[in-house]
């Protein structure tokens, strides 16, 4: 018993040295707004996992409460922006923050918040229907350039997978897909299976579900042929699929799960939250969760985070504005 108490005391002392900010922050429950419905999407589930990991690992001594605001993203995002910057209000968001702003659907953006941390990310893939006979990314782009506006690309128009599709066609002069409203991964797959959609930009998780069999190998019965992965390196789920970089294209497209705080939130709380995210990311349960969702843990905070956001904004903003006009 004594040994146990000593361990606990030493542990607590070590923790208090390692994370001095936690002594003052948080002094009440941390509220994270999720600007869409509960259970929808990987970033919602990622935040629920964060809540669980933080509670189980006693990473901070206050609980996290999650507040889902349903309906379109701008509603919840605006609510979160207007919250009291007392250091206990946060919001989780992903790349759609940029596509929405570029398309003029919100009149604010990431610069109107305090960027806090990136937890993880998932990257997109480009797939074709096997009945097209296309086997490589180059063949796809050649076809899209030779017969512009004929290959049907399923997408949620104006949203992330549409912006991604435009960026892919931009890789070859004259290449044009015909974008059709099919929604996200779940909405696009039935159209794909029905043979009406030939090209799709599934997320890594979608590609895993739709193209691979239960044994993790490519499913011969699936209509999906994966051509390229837009991550920094090959995805562990489909190691035979090359990245765009390997194929000679300087192109990467990942959807980041970002945490923000309202402008004016004390730096101490921002740093505290970021340290909490980093600590949670080291947890085994969190790692297992990310792997299950075909996501990659990719912690970032401070200046690095802001630089990365600026880089993405420059790349995405003009394309998203075009996507909105299409």
């Amino acid at each position: 018993m004594r040994q146990f108490l000593t361990t606990v005391c030493v542990g607590l002392a070590a923790a208090s040295f390692a994370m001095p900010a936690f002594a003052e922050w948080p002094d009440k429950p941390i509220k994270i707004t999720i600007p869409w419905k509960a259970g929808a999407g990987a970033v919602d589930q990622m935040t629920r996992q964060l809540q669980k990991t933080v509670a189980e690992g006693s990473i901070v001594d206050q609980p996290i409460t999650i507040f889902n605001v349903g309906g379109p993203i701008p509603i919840g995002l605006r609510q979160a922006k207007g919250q009291d910057p007392d250091g206990h209000n946060f919001v989780v968001m992903h790349t759609a923050m940029m596509t929405l702003q570029a398309a003029g659907k919100i009149d604010f953006g990431y610069k109107d918040f305090e960027p806090v941390a990136r937890l993880g990310q998932f990257c997109q893939t480009t797939s074709v229907h096997k009945n097209t006979g296309i086997e490589t990314l180059d063949a796809l782009l050649d076809r899209a350039a030779a017969e512009p506006n004929t290959l049907v690309h399923g997408a949620n128009l104006g949203a992330i997978n549409h912006v991604y599709g435009i960026m892919v066609e931009d890789l070859r002069d004259g290449a044009k897909f015909r974008f059709v409203q099919t929604g996200g991964d779940a909405g696009t797959f039935p159209e794909f299976k029905g043979g009406r959609v030939q090209v799709a930009g599934f997320s890594a998780a979608g590609a895993t579900n739709f193209a691979l069999g239960a044994d993790g190998k490519p499913d011969p019965d699936s209509p999906v042929r994966l051509l390229a992965y837009a991550g920094p390196e090959r995805h562990v789920n489909f190691p035979n699929v090359p990245t765009f970089k390997e194929l000679g294209y300087d192109f990467q497209f990942c959807v980041d799960g970002w945490y923000f705080a309202p402008k004016g939130t004390p730096a101490e709380a921002v740093a505290g939250f970021a340290a909490m995210v980093e600590a949670a990311l080291a947890d085994e349960g969190m790692q297992a969760f990310l792997a299950k969702k075909s996501m990659v843990g990719a912690f970032q905070s401070g200046g690095d985070l802001l630089d990365e956001m600026d880089r993405q904004w420059e790349a995405i903003a003009p394309v998203a504005a075009r996507a909105a006009k299409k």
């Binding site: 379109p72 509603i75 409203q181």
Partner: peptide, 23 residues
């Protein structure tokens, strides 16, 4: 609200609340 195919926002009279339409 958001039109169901193009994703364009229509007839919301500048309010965010109406983006989701009448549910």
């Amino acid at each position: 609200g958001i039109d169901p195919s193009g994703g364009e926002i229509r007839l919301t009279f500048g309010t965010d609340d109406l983006i989701g339409g009448f549910k």
